[in-house]
Design a protein around this nucleic acid. Structure first.
Length: 855
RNA sequence: GCCCGCUUGGCGGAAUUGGUAGACGCAAGGGACUUAAAAUCCCUCGGCCGCUCAGGCCAUCCCGGUUCGAGUCCGGGAGCGGGCACCA
């Protein structure tokens, strides 16, 4: 029997679907809509297995919902601005636009070879002027609405390249290309006021019940609402005060120092005539801007010489330090340290020999003898050594401390968020130009709407480091739109997260030039019913998009707050890693099993060290090219492999054996459907009057499978759905006999199997459908339904336990009375033996499930 | 450092609300077919004892708890992974 020809068959059906425009979406108020979208890819070159997994998952949902009668929108686009294009420009001397567009062309073909049910007519690419023009328009709206503003902010600075570095370009505190120690620079940049929506973004998480709990929790922690107090410390010998935010005002009596950020105004002022402090601040400014770098760095400080006066203890002076772990962006950029009850403060106090006074004791400890050594006590307890707070618990202590601060005029209760405003300025070429003109007379002037888009110049050079827009001979020179005098364009471009925060709205209608998106179409399609992508986007992209949607509403563009009704986060695709004797990474293609089964180099035969399985990445070379897999086995095989074993939210291990197994199943199905010796009823054959034992069991299994697979697909249990379908096809393969009822049930079973497998392996399913003699397209066929009456089992197997251990099973008619079940169970030989003839103390009967005899 | 997750046979995993642990598959071993190989088909397959049957003991990362009953709930711990605001 011939093998299934995946290549020809897949191309054939792709052409048919394309010719008939099967997946072109249209607004249709008469049907329920379903908007399914996967996170659009960055065009890095070729598709990788992560893409294959992502778009397979989305396509299963799209095709399934479509079969269930939904009006489905399933679009695709390109997140095509970004740093890698500039890196390619520098390394390979190719223009970012050329590099990007060529990548898109390759990846579009690759995606098309997967047979995805996409509406390609809505394709968009964020790096094209028709798209970023609309983004610029939105930016100007935000400026107008007060949602975008300028402020000074710190960036990583490479002093050799004279350019800004992304955090990922800072390796161990040094520039990735120059190796020079990274410094921090203060630049005036644009920010979006995401913090204006802190509370709303936090509260609305509760309504996102089709989002994974872990993502909601991560966003909650990211927003980081904390209640506490502002304490305005008087400063000895000065009129101004030090504004400090704390979540622990109850520990004020244990304060032994204050600390400010290196870029706090007081630090700057005190450093003016203090070279040692200057040096320390300069050292702080050499640290990367990433929170990780700051948190893991050794905690260090430098005394400013200032003294803060304790608000509750007359004459108590607290030294004010500059400390490298205090962030200017959080709270007021200043803290007070209570070493006994904060680990970081404790480490700091020990290092600088500052007092450690415990002011909260564990409830069951002796207050007089309580002290801390190396571990701060951070739990609730009883307040001690704190005058008017003594004896209170932490909650009451906070309240009482705040009341007293207010009374004295030294502070007030306060809520702070960890969330910071979103800096969108990037000192790079390959992004949307920020549509602003700087005029010496008029200040900051928005580019008039009629002048949009502000196009990126094509003739740029990466010969010198830094932002090519800055170095361009003419681009930034422009006349002020207000006064007409010579002015300068903003040379910063927008963060690419800006582009990806609203693209789903533009998918809703044919792309117009005069508006970012069409209101009526957005009203129809949005919100996205199912969004699918990697967990790595849990906070940034997904939070920015939520904020953006609110901002768009504030500007009158749309009527909703939340862009994504359902979210699914997929796991990564992993593969074993291999290294040769020199420690160099090897591609899986370069490794073959040797005679002893141990991995060997395919060409040299040298021993290869097998490493653990990790996320596929170019740097470790543990990648398998999807194009090669699709070329060899076909897209359906790759798709079913992506779906069959691992639950979609977990990591998936790619193995050669696994893809072979998937390919064998494809061919098993092909043989099952094209077996000329097996009986197959005519298409319109009526149901026989009676079914024999095997046919009846198969008929019930068909209904059971429809019910199970539908439920599994609804809940993203795709691996289970595959298992259920395998069970059905195994059963159909074992159906014996040539009788009429077998032939009839066989047709029902095959037809159902083709329909159930269609969302996962659409080409094969379509081919099998036609092998059964159907003329219409499976892709236009409604999802099969099951008869609930067929699911009821007449008898059940009941587990019988003695003291919680399984001793026997009991087949009984469904819903047998408790007493009868108990009597039967106790009479069982195994139960008699296990109870040793003793009378049971208690018998627990769970109907149709289990009996537990307790002796 | 902080936040979040994951951990079940040789492997991927299954096990609605606590109720028969290991569905479905991969790998492996044995057999059939074949001149041979591939493909295909059949059988075995968590460990140990018994080993023909019957059966018994152990087993869901580790330690403890709740319960008639825990992979599932609670407390503590270990290992691995993701994110940390300019990678996308």
């Amino acid at each position: 029997m011939s093998r299934y020809n995946a290549k020809e068959t897949e191309a054939k059906w792709q052409t048919v679907w394309d010719d008939r425009q099967c997946f072109a979406a249209q607004e249709d108020p008469s049907r329920p809509k379903y908007y399914v979208m996967e996170m659009f890819p960055y065009p890095s070159g070729r598709i990788h297995m992560g893409h294959v997994r992502n778009y397979t998952l989305g396509d299963v949902v799209a095709r399934y919902k479509r079969a269930r009668g939904y009006n489905v929108l399933h679009p695709m686009g390109w997140d095509s601005f970004g740093l890698p294009a500039e890196n390619a420009a520098i390394e390979n001397n190719v223009h970012p636009a050329k590099w990007t567009r060529e990548n898109i062309a390759v990846m579009r073909d690759q995606l098309k070879s997967m047979g995805l049910s996409l509406d390609w007519s809505r394709e968009l690419s964020t790096c094209e002027p028709d798209y970023y023009k609309q983004g610029q328009r939105l930016f100007l709206d935000f400026v107008e609405a007060g949602l975008a503003y300028r402020k000074e902010s710190w960036v990583n600075w490479d002093p050799v390249e004279n350019s800004v570095l992304a955090n990922e370009q800072v390796i161990d505190g040094r520039g990735w290309r120059t190796g020079a120690p990274v410094e921090k620079r203060l630049l005036s940049q644009w920010f979006l006021k995401i913090t204006e929506y802190s509370d709303d973004l936090l509260a609305a998480l509760g309504s996102l019940d089709r989002w994974p709990d872990k993502v909601r929790l991560m966003q909650q922690n990211w927003i980081g609402r904390s209640e506490g107090a502002r304490v305005n410390f008087k400063l000895k010998g000065r009129q101004d005060r030090l504004d400090v935010f704390t979540t622990r005002p109850d520990t004020l009596f244990g304060a032994s120092f204050c600390a400010v950020a290196a870029n706090h105004p007081l630090a700057q002022e005190m450093a003016a005539d203090n070279p040692a402090l200057q040096a320390f601040i300069a050292e702080c400014n050499r640290m990367s801007t990433s929170e990780e770098a700051i948190e893991t760095a050794e905690k260090r400080g430098h005394d400013t010489g200032l003294k803060a006066l304790h608000p509750f203890i007359d004459g108590r002076e607290l030294p004010v330090y500059v400390a490298n772990f205090v962030l200017m962006d959080y709270g007021s950029g200043a803290i007070f340290g209570c070493p006994a009850h904060d680990q970081r403060d404790l480490d700091f106090a020990r290092k600088y020999k500052l007092p450690v006074v415990p002011v909260v004791a564990p409830k069951d400890a002796d207050p007089a003898g309580f002290d801390v050594a190396d571990v701060a006590f951070v739990d609730d307890g009883v307040i001690i050594n704190s005058e008017f707070l003594d004896g209170l618990n932490v909650t009451a202590g906070k309240r009482a401390a705040i009341d007293r601060l207010v009374e004295q005029g030294d502070g007030e209760s306060s809520i702070r968020y960890r969330l910071r405003d979103w800096g969108v300025s990037r000192q790079r070429y390959w992004g949307s130009p920020i549509p602003i003109i700087h005029c010496d007379s008029c200040g900051i002037v928005p580019v008039p709407a009629a002048d949009l888009p502000v196009l990126l110049p094509d003739d740029i050079s990466f010969d010198q480091p830094g932002n090519p827009l800055e170095h361009h001979p003419t681009w930034k020179n422009v006349d002020c739109p207000v006064c007409g005098k010579a002015a300068r364009r903003e040379t910063d471009t927008l963060d690419t997260f800006f582009d990806s925060s609203w693209y789903f709205n533009r998918f809703c209608a044919p792309h117009a030039d005069d508006t970012p998106f069409t209101r009526s179409a957005v009203d129809y399609w949005m919100p996205v019913d199912q969004y699918i992508g990697g967990i790595e986007h849990a906070v940034l992209h997904l939070l920015y998009a939520r904020f953006f949607t609110r901002a768009l509403r504030q500007c009158g563009y749309i009527g909703i707050d939340e862009p994504f009704d359902g979210l699914f986060t997929q796991g990564m695709v992993c593969h074993e890693t291999y290294r040769d004797a020199d420690g160099q990474w090897l591609f899986p293609d370069d490794v073959r099993p040797g005679d002893d089964g141990a991995p060997r180099h395919a060409k040299t035969g040298a021993v290869v060290e097998r490493g653990r399985s990790e996320k596929m990445s170019k740097s470790k070379k543990n990648v398998v090219d999807p194009a090669a897999i699709i070329d060899t086995y076909g897209a359906d095989t790759a798709r079913i492999y992506m779906l069959s074993d691992s639950p979609p939210d977990r990591d998936l291990e790619w193995t050669e054996a696994g893809i072979e197994g998937a390919w064998r199943y494809v061919n098993r199905l092909w043989r099952l459907f094209t077996d000329k010796d097996a009986p197959l009823a005519a298409i319109d054959a009526p149901m026989p009057n009676s079914l024999g034992e095997h046919a009846d069991a198969a008929w019930k299994a068909i209904h059971r499978t429809i019910a199970d697979v539908s439920g599994d697909l609804d809940r993203f249990h795709f691996n289970r759905a595959v298992a259920r379908i395998r069970e059905l096809t195994n059963l159909l393969g074992d159906l014996k006999g040539l009788s009429e009822d077998v032939a009839w049930v066989r047709r029902q079973g095959l037809q159902t199997a083709a329909q159930l497998i269609a969302p996962m392996m659409p080409h094969l399913a379509e081919e099998l459908w036609h092998a059964l003699g159907y003329e219409d397209l499976l892709v236009d066929t409604a999802w099969p339904t099951h008869d609930p009456a067929m699911l009821a089992e007449e008898s059940v197997t009941i587990a019988v336990q003695v003291n919680g251990k399984l001793r026997a099973t009991l087949d009984m008619p469904r819903d047998t009375a408790r007493e009868a079940v108990e009597t039967e169970a106790l009479a069982l030989e195994n139960v008699q033996r296990a109870t040793d003839g003793k009378a049971p103390r208690k018998v627990i009967v769970v109907p149709n499930k289990i009996v537990n005899v307790v002796v």
